[in-house]
Amino acid sequence: MLAFLVQRISQALLVMFVISVIAFAIQDGLGDPLQEMVGMSVSEEEREAIRDELGLNDPMVVQYLRFAGNALQGDLGNSYFYSKPTLEVIAEHLPATLELVIGASLIIVFLSVPIGVYAAIRPQAWLSKFFMGVSTVGISIPVFLTAIVLIQLFSIGVAVNWFPSDTGWGQWLNDFFTTEGGLPSYGRGDNLTHLFGTWNSGFFSEGGLMHLVLPSVSLASIMLPLFIRLIRAEMMEVLQSDYIRYARAKGLSAGRINFLHALKNTMLPVITVGGVQIGIMVAYTILTETVFQWPGVGLMFLEAITRSDIPLIVAYLMVVGLIFVITNTVVDLVYGLVNPTVKLTGKKA
């Protein structure tokens, strides 16, 4: 176990090192910090002087070591646009993204488990086939498109008059397909509750929750089909196993078998895969936040790209890289702990 632990942690450190080299290369190779700082009117000599002062003329290795040393002390430079430390800027934007991810995760957990289990227990029922069909279609819809459709339906609203309105059924169908709209589709609203530090939460006011609905449903829509399929596949495999057959022979009730004995063993791989997927959701938050102008780190990153705010781009890479590495390492370690069949050398069986 110790060997496994050491091996995983040293791999995490190696990956972090590679990320920092990439981040440094981006910082070094992209854009000219002087152009952002001083503008056109400064003479070449003055530029050269500032370059020396900033250490931009030092050898690469020296510059990297300085970069890494500062990063370890929590200093990733100042953002050009916000004119304050990049980590502070990220800390201000992170709560919005975290609330979005929490909202989406809640939707995923509360929908995927019952649907996946149901589809595994009754694979031939029309409702299961309907759910599986919807999830195939769902996988084919990019997250930003789901978001746009949701905005059209529930924020702008759709007035339907395809059916003759002079008959009762026509009017009923028109009303049925007409949506009111009115849900907010822009930002987080003003009713935020201050929790601590930089965390202003939208969870405690009606306005904040309303603003959370469309973005978190959109973000959940991309992961939900994956989880439904995963839970269904794992559950079906578990239901084939000997101990379930034995439990049936013993005469235990179906509910007890399915939800107590089978679900427990289904959730193990689901939780480990889920841990990794939650990390991957960070990539999708960029898309969701762009559509809804949600003031989280994803939107901040994209704005940093258009503003060529190199320090902020680099800081984002480092922070997101760290989040990924920590989630993956923890998930691996937990999996190694609960599943003794994983070889201790860390090679996948």
């Binding site: 992209l30 990794v276 960070v282 990539a283």
Partner: peptide, 21 residues
């Protein structure tokens, strides 16, 4: 390692770097 970062994330970062350079 590359897969654990999700292909979309890798593509976004490479795209951002290319666009900026």
């Amino acid at each position: 390692v590359q897969l654990s970062f999700s292909t979309l994330m890798v593509a976004i970062i490479v795209g951002a770097v290319f666009k900026a350079s």
